[in-house]
């Protein structure tokens, strides 16, 4: 079963995790054979939001979809047997520490 781990950082607190922490975690995910995909996202200041209204008119605005304290900083998609295993991987993610949050979402299967 595939789960997406959405890694949110807080704009209020600085995540103390180092690049080495992230590299170590990434290596673990790869070596466990559960990695499907995953990326770290560029800084929030580079975000652009697009909407298309009923008449097909496009609106482009600077910044993220919603102004919140929690900022999506990256994601993994992992393939594991069940939610408990997914939660274990989420808990090990450096992004879950220091005021950060990892949201675990099953990927819909059709």
């Amino acid at each position: 079963m595939k789960y997406m781990l959405l890694i949110y950082g807080s704009t209020d607190t600085q995540n103390a995790c180092t690049v080495e922490d992230w590299m170590a975690y990434d290596k673990e995910v790869q070596e466990a054979g559960i990695f499907v995909t995953g990326h770290s996202l560029a800084d929030l200041t580079t975000a652009t939001t697009v909407r298309v209204d009923d008449s097909g008119e496009r609106t482009v605005t600077d910044g993220p979809f919603a102004e919140t304290r929690e900022v999506l900083g990256g994601y993994y998609v992992i393939d594991v047997p069940d939610l408990d295993v997914a939660l274990d991987w989420a808990a090990r993610c450096p992004g879950a520490r220091d005021g950060g949050t990892v949201e675990v979402r099953p990927v819909a299967e059709f």
């Binding site: 079963m1 047997p81 069940d82 939610l83 408990d84 099953p106």
Partner: peptide, 10 residues
């Protein structure tokens, strides 16, 4: 069912 919460003893 959909998030696949397992039936297991921790």
């Amino acid at each position: 069912r959909e998030a696949r919460i397992p039936f297991r003893v921790p």
